[in-house]
Every structure is written in C-alpha cells, then in structure tokens.
C-alpha cells in the first residue's frame, strides 16, 4: 500500500491505496466520483479523460499514486454553483451527445483543446479530439458544440461590447443551433 494525497475537484484527499490502483478506479470506487466512466482497457476511447495538473489525461492510463500531490479536475468539478461551463452548455444546445457515455471525456478533451487553441477550425477540433471515441453522434455536432463554446468563451473574454460608433464588439457569431442552416433547406 502506498500513501498519497491528491486534490480532486477542489477537495483534498489523503489515502492509502495499492500502487496498481488506476486513477479512474480511485475516482469511481474510492471517492464515489462516478461521473468519469471507463470505456476501454487500452487507452483508446478517452471516456475517462480528466485533467491532471492542468493537462488532459486518460485516467485509466494513470496510476492513482502518480497523481500524488497533484490536482485533478473531473467533469463533476466543472460547473460552479450549478452554472455550466460554455462547453457543457454548448454540448446540450448543439445536441452533441446521445447516450452521453463519452461526454465527460469529450468535454474534458475539448476543454484542453480550447486552452491551447481558443479559436480552432473544425479540422483542428476533429484532430484535437482524435483520442476520444463516440459511437452515437458521428462527431458532427460535437465539432459544432466546440465551435460554439469557443465563440462563447471568446465573447466572455472580450472587453464589454462598446457602442457601434466607438468600437467594434466581437461580431463573430456562434454557430446556430444544431438544425438551423445545417440541414439544407428546401
């Protein structure tokens, strides 16, 4: 058994665990943080993606003891006071999830992507999510959701819009909701 401590979603934990314990099983079975699911055993699917010390990682390919002294954020730690992040909102509004099993990992991976590239192209989004598999959506609405969240985050970061004659607010539009404009019109 190995002693270690880690902070998960803002709460610090001290534990003694077997060194072989996977971080994802620590989260799920020891802390009861079941928002992060397990989807494979080879690191391919990305369902278990969390943030460790600021970086996205696949928590099935990290030992819990490797997170010693570290800070973990899971999908359960994203919303503050019940207010969703732009990504969570965008996944909902753009219908970027169906069964939702890949969603926690997808959101965590997208969050990492936007941190490095706040204004990605659709191709960059697809590339940035290459380590996360979804079997329901065909990815198209996930790409749209990340675009929408990026636009929303840029809007929030931008200085407050000024009047039209004194300055130019960020006018780049967020993508319209999932069906508008995307389904070709007759």
């Amino acid at each position: 058994m190995t002693r270690f401590s880690t902070t998960v979603d803002g709460t610090r934990y001290e534990d003694e665990v077997e060194p072989r314990l996977l971080l994802v099983h620590y989260l799920r079975d020891h802390l009861g943080l079941t928002g992060t699911p397990v989807g494979c055993d080879t690191g391919n699917c990305g369902a278990c993606t969390v943030e460790l010390d600021g970086d996205s990682v696949k928590s099935c390919s990290v030992l819990a003891v490797q997170a010693d002294g570290g800070e973990v954020t899971t999908v359960q730690g994203l919303a503050t006071d019940g207010e969703w992040t732009a990504l969570q909102t965008a996944f909902h509004e753009q219908h970027a999830l169906q069964c939702g099993y890949c969603t926690p990992g997808m959101i965590m991976a997208a969050r990492d992507l936007l941190k490095e590239n706040p204004d990605p192209t659709p191709e960059e989004i697809r590339r940035g999510l290459e380590g996360n598999l979804c079997r329901c959506t065909g990815y198209q609405n996930i790409v749209r959701a990340v675009l929408a969240a990026a636009a929303e985050e840029r809007r929030r970061e931008a200085p407050a819009p000024r009047s039209a004659d004194t300055g130019r607010p960020d006018t780049r539009p967020a993508p319209a909701p999932a069906t508008a404009g995307q389904e070709a019109r007759t």
Binding site: L33, T34, G35, T36, P37, T74, V75, Q76, L78, A79, W84, Q88, F91, H92, L97, G100, T103, P104, I107
Partner: peptide, 9 residues
C-alpha cells in the same frame, strides 16, 4: 442532457 454533461449519471 443535464445529468449527462455534468457527470451526475
């Protein structure tokens, strides 16, 4: 969606 995007599944 609410529970799925927040991990309250």
């Amino acid at each position: 969606d609410a529970r799925l995007v927040t991990g309250r599944t």
